[in-house]
């Protein structure tokens, strides 16, 4: 069970000595603003949003690649903050990440054996046979077989899909309890994507881990995720079980995202309002609800006060941060979006 509590990451607009003199002193970009969610063991949460909404930053903050401004994560009850303080290395035994770019995230100068063995070695495992067995087992698990044939290979000999499998192998070799996958298939060929999704699904089940699946693509989350969180400008605006969120979206932004999924059937026409405009200026956030400048339903209240998450259709599992959830026109979108 993973429990992320009130995670915040604010970036100062100017930093260093210059910040003492700058006019923008004290101004921050709230990239991640009070984000909380839970993931059960063996389950997948999809974190969905436009680029720039803070979803990748959330992942990076969880992995401590960015210092969180505040907030904590509980990994099976243990505070990540305390774990990191005690020993950064043991923290990374429990939480790992898969990066978006399978080309950039592998050092071209290292072969497969050295890429896979490094995490083990950094954790203090020195025994060569243990390392080798573990590597072979992992390669097999991520579908790179025969594993012996891959050990000595260099990354430039691997295809994009094989590279991403290697990255997944590197992430699971330490048997973490929590895995963050940041757009793991967005840079792969279409033909390979489903293979990676299936692999992730199997690993979650087999290894009993929790997966945070970060993506901008609502179309794929249905296949993989048990729950979905929709993020907009640093906030989670809607969260709930996948079916509930996709079928009964309680936030206008979620509706807009769903309506933008292409449907491979020209006979279906869509209701629902597409969003217009671009994401607002992240330094000077709009007053009230952050979405109101783009929201077709916005009322005066939305411009004045910021909504908090409330249950949608009396479902405690499903929450949306919108004043108008109950007043929204019916969302009788054809099932076409579940392609």
């Amino acid at each position: 069970m993973i429990d992320v509590i009130d995670l915040k990451k604010y970036f100062p607009v100017v930093s260093g000595i210059r910040s003492l003199f700058s006019r923008s002193r004290g101004k921050v970009v709230k990239a991640v603003d009070s984000v909380s969610f839970q993931i059960e063991t063996g389950q997948v949460l999809g974190l969905v949003g436009e680029s720039g909404c803070g979803k990748s930053t959330t992942g990076r903050v969880l992995l401590d690649l960015e210092q969180p401004t505040s907030g904590d994560i509980l990994i099976n009850g243990e505070s990540g903050r305390a774990l990191k303080k005690k020993n950064r290395k043991t923290y990374y035994r429990r939480i790992q990440m898969i990066f978006q770019d399978p080309y950039g995230s592998i050092n071209p100068q290292h072969n497969v054996a050295s890429i896979l063995s490094r995490p083990l070695m950094y954790q203090g495992i020195r025994d060569k046979t243990i390392i080798r067995d573990k590597m072979l087992e992992t390669l097999d698990r991520v579908g790179l077989s025969p594993p012996e044939a891959f050990l000595e290979k260099y990354p430039h000999l691997l295809s994009g899909g094989q590279r991403q499998r290697l990255c997944i192998g590197r992430a699971i070799i330490l048997e973490p309890e929590f895995l963050v996958a940041d757009e793991p298939i967005s840079m792969l060929d279409v033909s390979i994507k489903s293979g990676i999704i299936i692999l992730l699904k199997r690993l979650v089940r087999e290894q009993n881990l929790s997966l945070l699946y970060i993506t901008h693509d609502l179309a794929t989350v249905g296949h993989l995720c048990d729950k979905i969180a929709i993020m907009y400008m640093g906030r989670i605006v809607e969260i709930g079980p996948t079916d509930d969120v996709l079928d009964r979206p309680g936030h206008p932004y979620t509706r807009a995202l769903i309506s933008s999924i292409p449907i491979p059937d020209p006979s279906i026409t869509r209701s629902g309002a597409p969003i217009s405009g671009a994401i607002s200026d992240p330094v000077n956030l709009p007053s009230g609800c952050r979405f109101h400048p783009r929201c077709p339903y916005a009322e005066n209240l939305c411009r004045q006060r910021e909504p908090v998450s409330a249950a949608v259709k009396d479902n405690p599992e499903h929450g949306a941060a919108c004043f108008l959830t109950d007043k929204l026109p019916g969302f009788d979108l054809t099932k076409g979006h579940r392609c």
């Binding site: 992995l63 950064r88 035994r93 990440m97 950039g104 995230s105 592998i106 490094r118 950094y122």
Partner: peptide, 13 residues
Amino acid sequence: ERPFVDAARISGA
């Protein structure tokens, strides 16, 4: 800035 540096960092390097 290349991601493999981040990857190494989360390996505990």
